[in-house]
Amino acid sequence: MSHTVLIAGAWISAGLTIFLFSFLYKDNPFFKIAEHLYLGAGMGWWCQIYFGVLQEKVWTPLTHHEWLVLLPALLGLSLITQFIPKISWLSRYGFTFLMGYGSGLAIPAGLATDFINQIGGTIQPFANLAGMTAFTLFNSVLMAVGVICVLIYFFFSLEHKGAIKKVSNVGIYFLMIYFGAAFGNTVMARFSLLYGRFDSLYTFSGKQYLYATQVILIAMVTYFILHGFLTRNKADQDEEAA
């Protein structure tokens, strides 16, 4: 890769990062540029993926005389008939198949993981009761109690009042503890992404990249200051005219 291309890449990368971050201040033309560019690039990327799928999953098998692929291909193409009102009813075949196929896949998997495995996983530690320490026993009992309390919170056939309400409130505490842990975990992951961007900005602030980060940042701040003054003057004039 030539040095010029590398510098151009650094300027684009630093520029787009700062443009997107500028939204934290307020909506502005720089953010709009980055937003629309991102949108277009994202769709362009997915378009080539989808066309790639057509070639790989339909065209290549057809050239090998695998005619059965025509069936799913036609069902898939039927979805596009939505754009032609006269034959849009054809899309129902595709949608129906999609829904049936999705349910067929989801129901057994959901039943196994959310239902039977949940029960099995909760009671399984008690099979080794003799070998349990006081802490593991407490942990297992806590889990079992937590499962029952949370399920009572999500039980919609009973009005939550009296004892049911109390148990359900305990369920909410279990949920909130979980959500707190999940929140911390996800925030940590997001921070690592943020560090990644900051690291890139720091790298692009070097001499070899012609101080891309600083130049773009200063240019944007100057724009915001000038824009602020100009719009304030204009607003003052409007007020006077009024």
């Binding site: 239902f115 029960i119 009671i123 399984q124 009761l129 079992a144 499962v147």
Partner: peptide, 23 residues
């Protein structure tokens, strides 16, 4: 809701029976 009821009862009974069986 029926499914949840089954899970609750199964967990409660399962824990007791498994613990008794293990003891």
């Amino acid at each position: 809701d029926f499914g949840k009821l089954v899970v609750m009862i199964s967990v409660a009974l399962g824990v007791i029976l498994t613990a008794v069986g293990a003891l």
